[in-house]
Simulated assay, not measured.
Amino acid sequence: MTTLGAVFRPQLPPERLRDVVRVGEEVGLEELWLWEDCFREGGISTAAAALAWSERMRIGVGLLPVPLRNVAVTAMEGAALHRMFPGRAILGVGHGVQDWMGQVGARAESPLTLLHEHLDALRALLRGERLTVDGRYVRLDDVALDWPPAGPVPVLAGAEGPRTLRLSGAAADGTVLTSSTSPDGVRRARRIVEEGRAAAGRDAAEPHEVVVYLLTATGPGAAARLRAELAAEGLESVSGLGVAGDAGAVAEAVRRLAEAGADTVVLQPTGDEPDPEGFVRFTAEEVRPLVP
């Protein structure tokens, strides 16, 4: 079955999060995803609050930009979330937007090397291993978590280009694709991820979850809002991106992504969505029943 989620966009002030979480929990939303976009809201702080305000809903962070984070801190925070809220936190890491990384003096000369080193160390620390690492970017001297998670913690990687997709297959437990990914793009990404998994000797029977965001607009002015957001991102000429309309239209777009290889589809409202709580309710109560 396809998992269906929704995004709390960081264009909203953080004090709005509690009401959105409350509605998501009330209507049975499966997953609520948060972003650590510069310079808006911290991913771990908002995830911890959302997990504390809910009892069942899974909370995803997609993505934590690795240039901003020492891997030991990411591991400590991720482990704490999983011990306090077992099985409900979803961790995703990625390159981060390079212009933003430059603004804070954290831009890496080789983002791919940094992400690879971070993934390897993060997954090992979360497994409870003790590490000494002298990499190009990640350096650890006899580091282990005092409070590792009680069980396995999947770590997802955000990826777009072929090299990062192959790295995600080789070194991550799942892949997060942006809303600029069409169904054909999902098929291509899945193929490249599998190439990376095979090259790294990963067990073909191991699950590798593919998560994709779907830019979604519903209600009055939906088509105009969708067009405006795609134009602002320079994507108006790309076919197959986003959906505007009622629950049936959105469910059909979700099905196309699922058939292309997505395990989880996360509905991403436009940045000017007028009713974030209503969007979550729409996702769970109207779209979910129409998605296999």
Results as ranks from 00 to 15, higher is better:
residue 256 R to F: 03
residue 217 A to N: 10
residue 267 L to Q: 03
residue 236 E to W: 00
residue 269 P to E: 13
residue 240 G to Y: 09
residue 234 G to K: 09
residue 240 G to K: 02
residue 227 R to Q: 13
residue 253 A to E: 11
residue 220 P to H: 04
residue 225 R to N: 12
residue 258 A to M: 01
residue 256 R to N: 02
residue 225 R to H: 13
residue 280 V to R: 02
residue 240 G to E: 11
residue 261 G to D: 06
residue 247 A to P: 09
residue 238 V to Y: 03
residue 273 E to M: 03
residue 271 G to M: 07
residue 264 T to H: 13
residue 283 T to W: 02
residue 225 R to L: 13
residue 244 A to E: 01
residue 219 G to S: 04
residue 220 P to E: 14
residue 277 E to F: 00
residue 292 P to G: 10
residue 263 D to F: 01
residue 264 T to V: 12
residue 219 G to C: 03
residue 221 G to Y: 04
residue 242 G to C: 14
residue 243 V to P: 00
residue 280 V to S: 02
residue 275 D to T: 08
residue 246 D to H: 02
residue 221 G to F: 11
residue 272 D to G: 05
residue 285 E to N: 08
residue 275 D to W: 05
residue 231 A to N: 06
residue 270 T to P: 02
residue 229 E to I: 04
residue 268 Q to H: 09
residue 281 R to T: 00
residue 272 D to C: 02
residue 261 G to W: 12
residue 240 G to N: 09
residue 228 A to V: 04
residue 237 S to W: 05
residue 217 A to T: 05
residue 223 A to G: 11
residue 237 S to D: 14
residue 287 V to K: 10
residue 279 F to L: 06
residue 266 V to Y: 06
residue 277 E to G: 11
residue 257 L to V: 03
residue 265 V to E: 09
residue 234 G to A: 12
residue 243 V to M: 01
residue 253 A to V: 10
residue 232 A to E: 15
residue 222 A to G: 05
residue 252 E to N: 14
residue 290 L to I: 08
residue 264 T to Q: 06
residue 258 A to K: 04
residue 255 R to E: 11
residue 252 E to R: 15
residue 267 L to V: 11
residue 256 R to G: 00
residue 253 A to M: 14
residue 233 E to G: 05
residue 284 A to H: 03
residue 249 A to Y: 04
residue 241 L to R: 09
residue 282 F to S: 04
residue 214 L to F: 08
residue 234 G to Y: 04
residue 216 T to V: 02
residue 290 L to Y: 12
residue 291 V to D: 13
residue 252 E to T: 10
residue 222 A to D: 02
residue 277 E to Y: 00
residue 242 G to Q: 02
residue 291 V to G: 11
residue 284 A to P: 10
residue 247 A to K: 09
residue 232 A to R: 15
residue 267 L to W: 10
residue 244 A to S: 09
residue 290 L to P: 12
residue 241 L to C: 05
residue 246 D to Q: 02
residue 261 G to P: 11
residue 256 R to I: 00
residue 274 P to E: 07
residue 251 A to M: 09
residue 253 A to Q: 14
residue 228 A to S: 15
residue 238 V to F: 06
residue 279 F to A: 05
residue 238 V to M: 07
residue 220 P to F: 08
residue 251 A to N: 13
residue 257 L to A: 03
residue 266 V to E: 08
residue 279 F to D: 03
residue 232 A to D: 15
residue 230 L to N: 05
residue 287 V to D: 12
residue 251 A to R: 01
residue 259 E to C: 00
residue 249 A to W: 04
residue 285 E to G: 05
residue 254 V to E: 15
residue 289 P to T: 11
residue 215 L to D: 07
